[in-house]
Simulated assay, not measured.
Amino acid sequence: MISEDELSRLMQLAIADKAAEPAFFRALLEATVYAHAPRHDRSGRLRFIQFTTPDGLTVLPFFSDETQAKSAAGANATVVVLLGRQLFELARGATFMLNPNTVSCTLYPEEVAALLDRGEVAVLERVEAGEHQYRINPLDEIPAWVVDHLLPLFAALPCVSAAYAVEIGNSDTPGRGLLIAVAVPIKDAERVARATTTALQTHADELQLSVDLTAFEPGEVPDWLADAVVAPFYERAIGERLVPGSERVQ
């Protein structure tokens, strides 16, 4: 068991330094957490309350301390107490939001699965292009791991319309890397970025080079990508064949 004080300490470290996030989320599995269930539910089953954010994301809120949970419960909810691991297992497939009324963070289904199954948490770093000049070139050959690991992932995410792989270089830094460009609605871009990072981190030893990801709205291919004259390695039609009924997946 992880005490509330220890969990709070690890949370503050994670807020200050992204490198500390994996230790916090692993501790969360063994800590007491608090969720909401309907107060007058007569179904005989444990059902968790969810809500939809202004961005249209449906999340299951939970809390790291009882005070926050009771304050947010209101008149129609009751507080459910359980271990983090139990909550994630019971509602596997949901998108979780920790402490939504304070310094919240979101855990997407792919991240929860990696945490439960392998104890892994990907660290996502957001980089603004700013004034940097990047060199974009077509790849002679798309690495096999791209197809092997990202095709099934994107097939399970019907919000992804297409994905491209190009070579990227930075005039400020020697060497070259791989850039994955994904056509996905902006509201779903964070989930896709986190799911992709989670999938690739598991196979980091295979990569042999740096990997970045960028997203754009479907149907609005950026000029730099059009100029590279590359074909997508993934299209939604592929996903529909790999995952029957994928258009209905939420």
Rank of each mutant, 00 (worst) to 15 (best):
T67M: 08
V160F: 00
E247R: 14
P174S: 12
R241Q: 15
P138W: 08
E235G: 04
A144T: 12
E220W: 11
L107K: 04
V59N: 10
E240H: 08
A75Q: 12
V160I: 04
Q68R: 11
Y134R: 12
V146R: 02
S43D: 09
A14K: 10
V249H: 13
G169Y: 01
D148T: 11
A91L: 01
D205E: 08
D148V: 04
A35Q: 04
T32D: 10
G56V: 10
V112W: 03
F48I: 01
R248A: 11
F63M: 05
H149M: 02
H36N: 05
L116H: 05
A14S: 15
A31I: 08
D117L: 06
T52G: 03
I15C: 06
A199E: 15
Q12K: 14
T198M: 07
Q133D: 11
A199C: 13
S43P: 02
V230L: 04
V146M: 05
E125R: 07
L116E: 07
F62I: 03
F48P: 05
M1R: 10
Y108N: 07
C105W: 13
E21I: 13
V243M: 14
A215F: 14
T102L: 12
S43C: 02
L209E: 09
L116C: 08
F233Q: 09
A19G: 06
P185R: 12
D117I: 00
A114S: 09
G56Y: 10
S246N: 15
G175I: 05
E125C: 01
Q68C: 00
K18R: 15
N101K: 07
A226M: 13
D227C: 09
T78Y: 01
R176G: 07
V80P: 01
A122S: 15
P222C: 11
F216D: 01
L178R: 00
A69L: 03
D188T: 04
C159H: 06
E21A: 14
L98A: 14
G93M: 11
F96W: 06
T214F: 02
A163N: 11
E206Y: 05
E120I: 07
Q68N: 04
D148I: 01
Y164Q: 07
D55Q: 14
E217F: 02
E111W: 00
G169D: 06
S104G: 11
A162H: 06
L179D: 00
E6V: 05
R194H: 07
A77K: 09
D205K: 11
A165R: 05
E120P: 00
L225K: 06
V230D: 05
V81N: 07
A122W: 08
W145R: 04
P244I: 06
A14R: 10
A73D: 03
T196A: 00
E120S: 06
A27V: 07
L29P: 04
Q86W: 04
I186E: 14
D188E: 14
V211W: 00
P158G: 04
P109Q: 09
G177M: 08
K18Q: 13
L46S: 03
A199T: 15
Q208F: 10
A215R: 10
L83E: 13
R248V: 02
F24Q: 13
Q86D: 15
A69I: 00
A75G: 08
Y108E: 09
L98I: 14
H36S: 02
I142C: 08
A91N: 13
T78G: 10
T173M: 09
A189M: 00
L179G: 01
L107M: 13
F24Y: 15
